[in-house]
Design a protein around this nucleic acid. Sequence first.
DNA 1: CATATGACTGTGG
DNA 2: ACCACAGCCATAT
Length: 110
Amino acid sequence: MPDYNFYDSVYQVVRLIPPGRVTSYGAVASYLGTKGSSRMVGYAMQACGNANPPVPAHRVVNRQGLLTAKFHFGGDRMAEMLRSEGVEVESDQVKDFKKVFWDPAIELEM
DNA sequence: CATATGACTGTGG
DNA sequence: ACCACAGCCATAT
């Protein structure tokens, strides 16, 4: 593996998330091969503000579809953005999570 | 080089 | 079903 940066890989996968869809940290980590580093995905998101182009971190939620990242966005900004993209959010949780769930390991599998 | 941290996840009581 | 603890692994200090 050449200049392999974990952060960059995470950013690229997250940027592949289509609008109106969400994914989980574990799914991204698993796709990257580092299944156990689900926390690293979120940690990478912390530095997403340093990435270019920016990363739609608001499309990444936890396994339960809960907007754990909203605390970092500062308010319900995350929920509003998701709603703006067509994702129904209620009680900081994505409705029909299974329906809007976007798994890179499946969507990108070929 | 060693310790601490974290936007997670799974298992057990 | 709910709460608590442990495992995991890359980055930061």
